[in-house]
Amino acid sequence: MTATDYSQVAPQGNIFLPKECKIVNVKQVTELERHFTLKHADGSKVKFEPGQIMEVSLFGFGEIPIGYASSPTRENTFDIVIRTVGRVSGAVNKLNEGDSLFIRGPLGHGFPLEDLRKKDVLIVAGGIGLCPTRSLIQYITDKRSEFKRFILFYGTKDPSQQMFLDDIAKWKKANDVEYHETVDRGDSNWKGNVGVITELFKKTELSADTRVVICGPPIMFRFVVAECEKVGIKYENIYLDLERRMKCGVGKCGHCQINDKYACIDGPVFRYSDLKKLEEAL
């Protein structure tokens, strides 16, 4: 898959000029996170690959890199989830329906759909890692017949951190989604699994030909990759969606470098076999 050359689609060919979007819907999903549904202000269709990112901005506050949290199969709108962390995310999370925000994107390499089709797919999402992988989850459920088994592992610190509760209810009911979840710490109402996300590998049998997509906190990757190795999954069939400080999103500013690669244009999705050569990756 080729990365988007933003200079080809940016307003006036200027890679720092964003496009205006309108907020169609907004929901508070956890204490810190809000889920926005957006449309392009000019009414144009939304085109991107699952796993690609955008720079979300508000003038006067700045820009932050955010993954698409919905599938491009739903082309009229797209979703993002913003966790209140700093100046920009704090300001975005005060916006309401009808307000404008600005995006530059799509940027970078997404998930390799052509490598996932006709294969068993396992997605391992930890915490807020569910947001960018939701672009792929929705894509697979929208085009379910193109893929074989679809297994989804979701882990959070505690039940209050779970997002997309409506989606989870659907995945639990669906016959063609094998959904497993866990929390690091339960509460009095929690009746499900308690433990780290790697515990979920005990819940199902995986074939060695499974394609695995992993997104979560940096600490999680190593342990999940180790579980994949036990099943005999090859490194080139494991895809990691990495977090870095993707400040400009267009491979210029230098902040997201992983050795000689840029998370923003060479990733954020990488094959594990490629990351093995990059000492700074994991």
Binding site: A3, D5, Y6, S7, G13, N14, I15, F16, V250, G251, K252, I265
Partner: peptide, 10 residues
């Protein structure tokens, strides 16, 4: 470096 990938007119 400013020309490759995403061309930076700035």
């Amino acid at each position: 470096l400013f020309r490759e990938n995403n061309r930076d007119v700035n």
